[in-house]
Simulated scan of single mutants.
Amino acid sequence: MNVIDISDLSFAYGDEMVLHGVTLQVARGDYAVLLGENGTGKSTFLKLLLGELNPQQGKIYLFGSDTKKVFHADKIGYVPQNSISLNPFFPATVEEIVLTNLYSQIGRFRLPGKKQRQQATNALRWAGMEEYSKSRIGELSGGQQQRVMLARALAANPELLVLDEPTTGVDAASVRELYRKLEKLNREEGVTILMVTHASVKECAGISRIYHMEEGQVVER
C-alpha cells in the first residue's frame, strides 16, 4: 500500500506555474527523500501534501484516501522548516512544546493527563532529550532544539513523518545524529518517512527512494 500516492499534480500562483504534472509514490515503510534547490517548488509541494493548499490539477492520496475528501491528520507527524529558530527567552519548556502536538487528545481548556505526559516522556527519551524536559526550549542548542521538535512530531505515534529542511541551522554532528535516529525510526519502528531537503544525504543510511525536483517537475533516481 502507498502511504503517499500523487499523480499528475500541477499548481500555479496566478500565471506562474510552480508544479508541472508531479507524480510521486511513497510505500508504507519507505524512507524517501525529495531533493531540490530553493525555489524549485518544494514548499508548494509540501503545502499541497499537508492540505494547506488544494490541487488545481491531479490527485493526492494519503493512506488510500483522496485528501480533498478525507485528510488523516492524526496519522502524520510534521517537522517544519525553521522550527528551531526560537528566541532564547521563549518561556515554554521542552515538555510543553512536545505536549502541544497532543492537544487533539487532551481536549480544549484541559490539562494533559498521565497518558499524554507519558507519551511526551517516551518521545523525549527516544530523542535523547528527556533530561531537558523542564528546560526552556530557547536555551537549547540548535541540534537539541531539532531533536525536541522531532520528539514533538513523534509523540502522537504517527505512521508518516514529514520533515521540511530538517538540517538547516544544525551543526554537522547533530545532522549525523539526526540521520542515525531517522534510519533507526524507519528500520525498527516501521515509520514511513518523507524528508524534503536541499542538503546532501550521502551520510544518510537506509534511504529507499530518492526523488529530485527541478523547475516544478519530479523524477525518481
Rank of each mutant, 00 (worst) to 15 (best):
F45A: 05
R180F: 02
R152T: 07
V70F: 00
A73R: 15
G142S: 09
G206A: 09
K115I: 06
L111P: 01
K42F: 01
P80F: 13
A92Y: 02
P80N: 10
H20I: 12
N87L: 01
V3M: 03
E159P: 00
E177M: 10
Y61A: 07
M195S: 11
Q56P: 04
S141I: 12
V170I: 14
P158V: 07
Q116V: 03
N122H: 11
K114V: 06
G190V: 04
R147G: 05
A155N: 12
L182E: 01
V70A: 00
G29K: 14
E130W: 14
Q105R: 15
V201C: 07
L160M: 08
L99Y: 01
I210N: 01
L35W: 08
L178A: 10
E37L: 09
L46N: 10
T192R: 07
S65G: 01
R221Q: 14
A205P: 01
I76R: 01
K115E: 12
N186H: 12
N54A: 03
R28H: 05
S43W: 08
S10A: 13
L99K: 05
D5Q: 15
S135M: 09
V18H: 14
P91S: 09
E16A: 12
G107P: 00
Y31A: 14
R28Y: 04
G77N: 06
S7M: 11
G77H: 09
F45K: 14
T100H: 02
G107C: 08
I84H: 02
I97H: 00
V170H: 02
L9E: 14
S133W: 11
G169C: 08
S174V: 03
E159Q: 15
F109N: 07
E220R: 15
T121L: 10
F71E: 01
N82T: 06
L50A: 03
S200D: 15
R147L: 14
L178F: 12
F63K: 05
E177A: 15
V33I: 15
L124D: 07
R209G: 07
V148N: 04
G39A: 07
L182Y: 10
L160V: 12
E188Q: 14
